[in-house]
Amino acid sequence: MTTSPSALAAWDDLVPGAERQELADTARRHFAEQFPLTGVRECFGAGGRPLDRWVEIVEAGYPVIGLPESAGGIGGLTDLVAVVEESGRALLPLPLAATAAGRHTLIRGGLGVPAETDRSTALTTDPAAGVLDGAGAATVVTVAVVDDATTRVAEVTPAGAPELVTHVDPSRPVARWSGSIAEGRAQTVDATIDHVLAPARTIFAADLVGIAAGALQRSVDHALAREQFGRPIGAFQAVKHRLADHYVLVERARSLTRAAAVVVDHPELDTDWAPGVLALLAKAAAAEAALRITATHVQLLGAMGVTFEADAHLYFRRAEQTASVLGSTAECQIRAVRLMGTRR
């Protein structure tokens, strides 16, 4: 029996079932207990990032979620995005999103995933510009346009220690290798680059949704606790309406991210968009939500928001550092429109 794209049962994964909810709840507790924001603050010091703790993420089994069973994987991309959203909320200072994005892109490129190692993976479309969260990566996956309908995916092994370009977020720096890079496996696939990047964009969208949701919750907590004029500032419509709009931004991005994950797991449902478009829209929406909500979080705290002591700048830095990966909001939106236009 064919499945109608409107049949609700086909889209059940838009809402986490008991098992996936349990997975997300467990991840949330794990990150909150083992990786509090003090760890992000320590990245500002000489010690840098706690890359030695990547093994704890591996042991928890997060990086293999959504990979094929042949690669030791379990579950689908919908399960992975539920966990990555939690790592985004926690501002996890370890490369879970980058690793998942790299490995899912290898699968998209028909290259298969190497056996689980205790080192991370990363992804870039522009090796010269650097690799987000690439430090410590055993391999970096590169993706390049061959032509409108063909894309090349390769796996490279960087030599030596990278230069770390911290930009704005030292807990998620960009790595750049100056020396020669040995290219390993490579494959050219008959698909647009947007189709190849769909899982990776969906994963980064989940990370950004988590950042946005975490900052929104902190804004709400502050609006309830801080009193002026004899009442919580969250009682004033100037504040509450802004937060209501931000709630819409978070849920808009979350719905798109889950839908983008569902169509990676179930390509037969992706009938109304050109391949890769839903992931472009999810990534665009999540970046917009994260940028706006983290900036408002800084503002809502008043002068406290621009101190080092308040955590607001940590969310803001993470959002700014991540928002433009694999295309800014405007770039993703324009690309989606062009793909829909050429589809007819």
Binding site: W273, L278, L280, Q333
Partner: peptide, 9 residues
């Protein structure tokens, strides 16, 4: 593109 995202959302 933003509206395309909105419609899907």
């Amino acid at each position: 593109g933003r509206l395309l995202a909105d419609a899907a959302a």
